[in-house]
């Protein structure tokens, strides 16, 4: 029996594309309410791993469950329980902010009243009243990113997958984005985030470092620094890639 507190669990999860192994025997356990980070260079296998957990890709071998559901057999049920936001922000540029919210809320099965409520809530929270009726393509990047996050959370999912959510956004916007993430985690949402910004990894409760499809370390940022006797995550990352990387 798995413990009720473990919400994402993988066992030797592997994915190959032809001869190339993108994710190589990754085993992790993530607890409810955790902010779990995946740090790695581009091409380390982070996106592939996230896509498998969201049911977008079938694993080549290994097992995984998300919210107690098997990713191979119950991927459609998983989709009710997760929010997902990728680096493309995936909003419709030709629709207005309001219409985007309305659309995704409708997809998640919210009714008219709930949709209206959500629109108000989001516009207050993100201070985007003036933008509600403008095209999404006209929004500043940081705002677009927060709107994408808000749409991914419309159905209050217990787990949120973020795939490099902050790439291309300026530092100030990044900070306010992380504030939102903390709020959500405090409300009990489990957050699974990939990044290639090393400074962001310090914000995570626990962290896993990936290189060439393999997981080379997993721990809290604090104990990593302690264990390898380094002052910053920057140094830890450099050290690990040199020592354990391929």
């Amino acid at each position: 029996m798995k413990s009720p507190d473990i919400i994402v669990k993988t066992e030797n999860l592997t994915r190959q594309f032809g001869r190339f192994t993108a994710v190589n025997q990754v085993s992790i356990r993530i607890n409810r309410g955790e902010i779990f980070g995946f740090l790695g260079a581009n091409g380390a296998g982070k996106t592939t791993l996230i896509r498998m957990l969201c049911g977008l890709l079938k694993p080549s071998s290994g097992e995984a469950t998300v919210a107690g559901l098997d990713i191979k057999r119950e991927s459609e049920k998983i989709k009710q329980k997760i929010g997902y936001m990728s680096q493309h922000f995936s909003l419709y540029n030709d629709l207005t902010v309001k219409e985007n919210i309305e659309f995704y809320a409708g997809i998640y099965g919210l009714n008219r009243k709930q949709i209206f409520q959500k629109q108000n809530e989001i516009s207050k929270q993100l201070q985007m009243e003036p933008y509600l009726d403008s095209r999404t393509s006209d929004l500043p990047l940081g705002l677009k990113q927060r709107l994408a996050l808000a749409t991914a959370l419309l159905h209050n999912p217990p787990i949120l997958f973020l795939d490099e959510p902050t790439s291309g956004v300026d530092p100030r916007a990044r900070r306010s984005f992380w504030e939102l993430i903390y709020q959500k985690a405090a409300q009990g949402t489990t957050i699974f985030v990939t990044t290639h910004f090393i400074d962001e990894s310090e914000y995570c409760h626990r962290l896993s470092i990936m290189d060439n499809g393999r997981m080379i370390a997993i721990d809290t940022p604090e104990s990593m620094k302690k264990r390898y006797k380094k002052k910053s995550m920057q140094e830890v990352f450099g050290f690990l890639i040199r020592e354990k990387g391929i």
Binding site: G55, E76, Y84, S86, H88, F89, S90, I107, G109
Partner: peptide, 14 residues
């Protein structure tokens, strides 16, 4: 191309 299809795929939309 834009990436919205991927977003739709992770929703419970059948």
């Amino acid at each position: 191309e834009v990436g919205t299809l991927e977003q739709l795929m992770v929703t419970p939309l059948k």
